[in-house]
Design a protein around this nucleic acid. Structure first.
Lengths: 246, 246
DNA sequence: GCAAAAGTGTTCAAAATACACCCATGC
DNA sequence: GCATGGGTGTATTTTGAACACTTTTGC
């Protein structure tokens, strides 16, 4: 078993059998909604960041551990959204590659060829807070949600389902608070809503509605570096954490 | 292994390991929201209807199979809502009882003493469509959601979480269509909303709003058997199935 | 005669929507 | 000079909320 401190490995006896966790990690950067993906050196397809659940963990803890491992923070909005349990969802070819990379014997990794169901989580992170940390044989990359690469097994479906979930929950998720830096423009906030809802919003009505909700306040600052008609900056007043989503 | 055609049993090699499905089955009867529960002869606590997922099934199929087995129908609204994965959630005492009842040797049922995570499903059924079908050593009973008996392990929490989910999704779930018989009164429909939301609605405003949505139509009938001021009957025009919940 | 259940409309407030003009800059 | 991005306000429509009185029967 080849390993170093940039990665970790799972032993069959330490993890819950036939079950994994996959995280759809969203951020907002350059006016695009981005998803964090990974690809191992010898593989052809990108995949979500996922892993297994240790015997002492619940699935949330497993998801937080995986997230922290790759992004350097566990301070993020995280929710489970769907269990993917189609018996044909696992692509055995890919797991074989994984075994070849990580297991010292074929016997040792055999458990990875069995059926896995996976719990989908979505995470909302602030782009600037993330310090990507990848193993040597691993690439991590943010992808524009609208320009996804070819993805492993059912991961494209998982991402699509995450997006649908966020869309349905948009009114109750503090989406801007989770995705934007401390100071932001109203256009940035609106862009997030527009990308997720796949429709445009009237600039003026959007602004009025957001401000009337009371959680966003106008600052006395404008975006610097632009001398012409610079956009005003806004900030969230208090975490919208008081609402229970479930 | 003692078994008859009223029940079925699971063999370790046929099912996905460490994973179960539990169904919170809701119906509406006598102006109360009811949940279907089961108790085995030798047990002290009631529990949700649950079971395991066969290797050839996905979790939805397992849930439908379990539902059909006990209610005689699989024609119902069914949605997954939460994965319960706390490592301490399984109450081993209860599983020991189960093994004593069903396994011919301690060895055979040993797998049941390991950790299980469970996917919670909620189902909406029409009370009159259900023909309860229990094994000889099993009781099935509808319980008023507001008067639940003592429940096994974390099943009370599962029910509470199901209710919260339905509450959050109420505007998009065709709840009345799923729970009410073909003809119903406006008060019955309103009661469902009031119980789930744990608040009362103004009779007149509720009626206006429902009718303005267009899916409920007034019939030319009133409730028979009452000669005084009998309530008008209503019916759903078309399934609200056009909306995709996720 | 009084409590309980059901029928019926209006008014007001709040929220969502639609929409137009001005300004400064980069090209 | 014109396209781009950003600032600002008003009028209309729609939706939600509040609210009262009458009828019939059971007890």
């Amino acid at each position: 078993m080849k390993k170093d401190n940039f990665d970790y490995y799972y032993k069959e006896e330490d993890i819950h059998p036939g079950f994994s966790v996959d995280c759809v990690i969203f951020s907002f950067h350059k006016r695009k909604l981005q998803v964090l993906l990974r690809k191992f050196a010898l593989e052809d397809y990108w995949s979500l960041l996922g892993g297994f659940m240790y015997n002492h963990e619940d699935s949330e803890q497993a998801a937080y551990r995986i997230l922290e491992h790759h992004t350097g923070t566990r301070n993020m909005f995280l929710r489970q959204f769907h269990l993917f349990s189609d018996p044909t969802r696992t692509d055995m070819e890919q797991n074989k590659n994984y075994i070849n990379r990580n297991a010292s014997s074929e016997e040792e990794g055999k458990w990875l060829l069995r059926r896995f169901i996976t719990m989908g989580y979505y995470a909302l992170v602030k782009y600037d807070n993330v310090k990507l940390s990848a193993a040597p044989d691993e690439s991590l990359k943010w992808y524009d949600i609208q320009k996804l690469p070819h993805l492993q097994s059912d991961h494209e479906n998982i991402i699509k389902t995450a997006l649908k979930t966020i869309r349905a929950m948009l009114p109750v998720i503090p989406i801007g608070y989770e995705l934007l830096p401390e100071k932001f423009t109203m256009t940035e906030l609106r862009k997030i809503y527009e990308i997720i809802m796949e429709k445009e919003f009237d600039r003026r009505n959007f602004q009025r509605k957001i401000l009337s909700e009371g959680s966003v306040v106008q600052l006395d600052e404008t975006v610097s570096g632009k001398t012409y008609n610079p956009p005003i900056l806004y900030s969230f007043r208090a975490p919208d954490m008081d609402k229970e989503l479930l």
